[in-house]
Structure formats: C-alpha cells, structure tokens
Amino acid sequence: MREITFSEALGEAMLEEMQRDPTIFTYGEDIAKQGGIFGAYKPILGKYQDRILDTPISEEVIFGSALGASLAGMRPVAEFHFADFLFTGMTAVANQIMKFKYMTGGQGKIHLILRGPDGISKSAAAQHSESIETLFMHIPGIKIIVPSTPYDMKGLFKTALKADDPVICFEHKMLYAKKGPVPEEEYYIPFGKADIKKEGKDVTVVTTSRMVHESLKASEQLVKEGIDVEVVDLRTLIPWDKELVLESVKKTHRLVIIHETWRRGGWGAEIAATVQEEAFDYLDGPIMRVGAKNVHIPFSPPLQDFVVPDYNSVINEVRKVLNV
C-alpha cells in the first residue's frame, strides 16, 4: 500500500470532502498562504482558495463564529493554532459551542470542527506544548478525535466532516511528518471504535496519539523480556470504546493507561475507574497510569524529557504491573 504523511492524510480528507460538500470551509491563523504553522494544510494550498481564509488573531471569534456559521448552514473547520490557545477563546467553546444544542432543547445542527496541533515538540515550553483533551472529555458537548496514524487521521477526519455534531481534533505536532499506509480508495472510520495496534496477551495498554508510537516502541523492548503487550488505540475519547477496552482487559487481566497529558486528573483516571467498576473481578493487579508529571512543560531539553512520558515510562509501568 502507498504511504503518505499525517499532514497529507488530513489534506486528502479535506479535499475529498470539500469536493463533495460545498458548505465546508476552513479558517484560522497562518493557514491560507503558509499552510499552517506545522504545514498541516500544505497539501490543500492552491485549491479552493475562496474556502480557506487567514484570520485575525481573535480566538473568541475564530471559535464562536464557527457556531454561527454552522447554524447558518455551513460546515466550518476552525483551526486553533496551538491547543494552548483554545484557552484564549475558551468561552466561545465551552459556553457557546458545547452548550448551544443542549440549552436550546436540541435545536440546530452544530456541524463544526475545531482542529489543530497539541502536545510537545522540540522545547516549545509551557504555552505551546500542552495536551488538554481531558478538559473536553470532562465538559459535555463535543466529540473528541485524537488520531495516531495517517490512516486514522484521514478516516476519522472524513467522518468528522460528515458529522452533525461539534468535533474537536487534536493532532500531535510530532506526528505531522510521520508516514503510514493509506489506501487509495475512500473509507471512513466511525467514532467510538478503538483499534488494536498490536495484539498481546499479558497486559493491555490503552493510549492515543503520539503515545501509541511510544507504547509500540516499548512493546518491542518488552517482547524481548517475554512480555506480550496489547496496545489499544482509543482513537476517539468522546465517545470512547468501553466494550473493546473491557474485552481486552478480560483477556490480559492487567491494564496500564498512557497519555502525554498530566497524570493527575487526566482521562486515564476515567478509563481506570470505569474498568474497575465493570471488570474488577478480571483484574490481577492495580490499574496503572502514565502521564506527564504535574508541572508545566519546561523549556530545557533534559527538563522536558523528565516531565513528559516516553517509551521508557511505558516499560517501567508495565514491569511494575507484572511485578517483574
């Protein structure tokens, strides 16, 4: 199968759906001429130029206008530039977009997407490195996609572009250039369907986004130690695939949850609580969580490496849960 990058997968999803649906348009900072700060939109530059807009640095309007545009019949795709800057216009997201349909008794189709990069890169420090997907899982009213591969990026984004609900898409900065197999023929990936990225029988690792790759790398090391890890990529957090996670835990009897966002109060706690409520008798040990230490992402490389988890953190936690 041909291989394309994560960015190209996003571009293909956009182009295919923009051709099908003339109501799709996209806007944000630095996208129409530059193709986005990490080049995510480079594949679509030069096409549909009247439907790709550079905007003022006005986050509350970037987000809030997406609600107005969707109520007026369009399908806006608004870019948040960096996940950290969701906070800058957060009231439009949390008080308007995420509440409108519920508050009005189900009125309107809020078909809008907020998308952009999250996570660490090479020393971007605390205001350009955050992963804040947990917040959108905590507050009701938006669906969350967190793709880890070009295949998932394309299939999930195409589904988002056809959905009639608000969707937020977190694209890890360090994944944009990553290549992976993507078929030529069209496909969609439904929300709420996790993907087993590697089958295993000893311990279940539940993760998303960049940490899928760290977990796979860890599993390669662990297999040499005779530990067979099952890597479950949730792909979407709202909704999340409870059935598949429970099924995997019932098979392996052990669970480790891995995310780049902070360990304290991170979404892993929600998964852990659910599994112990519904599959307590199947567990042979405590559920462990891996996440960033509870400080901000520091600048200096050794500091960032210390705070943010990587494959070594996964290896350590898996060994711990297996008492080896």
Binding site: E60, V61, F63, G64, S65, A66, L67, G68, A69, S70, L71, A72, G73, M74, P76, A92, Q96
Partner: peptide, 10 residues
C-alpha cells in the same frame, strides 16, 4: 457577537 459574525461569514 462572535456567533453573529459566523452567521455573517456563512
């Protein structure tokens, strides 16, 4: 106001 701007864009 941001919602109105979005309807205007549409």
């Amino acid at each position: 106001l941001p919602i109105a701007v979005g309807a205007g864009m549409a």
